[in-house]
Design a protein around this nucleic acid. Structure first.
Lengths: 244, 244
DNA sequence: ATCGCATCTTAACCTATGTTTGCAAGCGAA
DNA sequence: TTCGCTTGCAAACATAGGTTAAGATGCGAT
């Protein structure tokens, strides 16, 4: 306990994240605390790894918003995931050496890099941590599935409402959102690229939701005025997030 | 080598699959061969596990086609993945106890059930196998990402062509397709539910592709007349499948 | 304080795809 | 052989959402 006072904020983030999806023994906790991290500040709209790269580190997002995306030959972009503090968006690179998509910042970000070697070693020595890492990537996949069904079968209104509900739950799980809203510092164009819509249509729907009294955006802050209604139009069921 | 003559076809499938994405040591090979399997024949259009279930086995697909899907409140269905022989579609249930989607047959299937306990044990004793399982679920996720970008940003023509290319590569990886086509015993409605389209539109596009001389469907067999052109309209790049 | 750029907003118009419906072809069961 | 059911096909029509383009608004940099 007294030791925990010396844990860096970066390690704290990592541990809070892992504890949001499972439990850690004291030994695992200590081993994670001892992980060597290289912390860096990265400007907004900057790529961290690109499709085709074979990175030698994983990155832990400490502050800000990241996204993973694919570019299409015609210039179109599909955002595959939006990542919030605590996430390790390229944990998969531990097993899949060459990236099949890119990872970039949506906002200025504080990121901590962790060498593959150090991660491999911790998984070797602590199978419980390995299992949690696996579990994390499986939840990742569960979110892809939910996005896929959204883009495949939900209307624009439902998709947007659903994304808002999802991000809210995920931020709450790591203690970054309260009851009435959350910071969502991303543009309508980025929303559009996430949901398979055009920016114009995102704008239309957003205004609809505001007129309907469901939400209210004050700058980068998304204030939700009527959670019940928002979840209702989204058809939101948080089970796929597998939070404890 | 003489031992390999006694390996059951089910175990052979499993091993062929794992070897298509990584390598096995002799010890791992033997341990997998000793895995207790409960083989069952399952009729077409039958659910194996449903959203909300907490299964105690994983299932190895030995013959036939399975799919994973989600139902929406309005009755819509999104197919999340199409599985072919060798796949273990619910390997994730080892870590995520309650299913966030369902798993059902598209055709009559031969399936081998493997108890979670046996799988846990093998991952405990053979970290290399654990890593391969992890890798398998990561490739699964890579395919979700590709589908997501398809549904989000590709036209109907591109989506259909892309799916055909993907299934072909996957079947080839486990030795179930030759050069000129493959068995694809699924209906246009199922194609539609996979691609976020209506069945009518799938029909239109399929005829287009036939008229264009790209494909030709004889019953359940999909004959590809012009691979180059098909990959061209799909914008297909197989890297995301991470086959060796 | 002002310029410049990104973002948001609006409007007019367009099209890919959805919906509904009906019919024909194939096929297994009785 | 016929019945019943699934699947494929077709045509007419409807619409959600895309596209283009042009202002308006906000805000960081100088």
């Amino acid at each position: 306990m007294s030791a925990s006072l010396n844990i860096s904020p970066e390690h704290r983030r990592l541990i809070a994240k892992l504890e949001s999806i499972g439990t850690l023994t004291a030994g695992e906790h200590d081993a994670l605390t001892a992980l060597p991290l290289r912390v860096r500040q990265i400007a907004e709209d900057t790529d961290i790894v690109r499709e085709g790269d074979a990175p030698s580190d994983c990155c832990l997002l400490v502050e800000g918003f990241l996204c993973r995306y694919k570019m299409l030959p015609d210039g179109g972009r599909q955002i595959l995931a939006i990542h919030t503090a605590g996430d390790i968006p390229d944990l998969q690179s531990l097993q899949l050496k060459v990236m099949d998509h890119s990872l970039g910042t949506l906002t200025p970000c504080k990121v901590a890099f962790i060498g593959h070697a150090a991660l491999q070693e911790i998984t070797r020595n602590y199978p419980g941590v390995a299992a949690l890492f696996w579990r994390d990537t499986l939840i990742d996949a569960a979110i892809f599935r939910e996005w896929l069904t959204g883009v495949g079968r939900r209307t624009a209104h439902q998709r947007i409402a659903h994304l808002f509900c999802e991000i809210h739950i995920r931020l709450k799980a790591v203690g970054l959102a309260n009851g009435d809203g959350f910071d969502l510092p991303i543009t309508q164009a980025e929303l559009a690229d996430s949901l398979g819509l055009s920016t114009v249509h995102v704008n239309r729907v957003l205004q609809d939701l505001r007129r309907g009294g469901l939400i209210q955006s004050r700058g980068k802050y998304l204030a939700v005025m009527d959670w019940r209604a928002l979840e209702e139009v989204a058809g939101f069921d948080p089970r796929y997030l597998h939070v404890r």
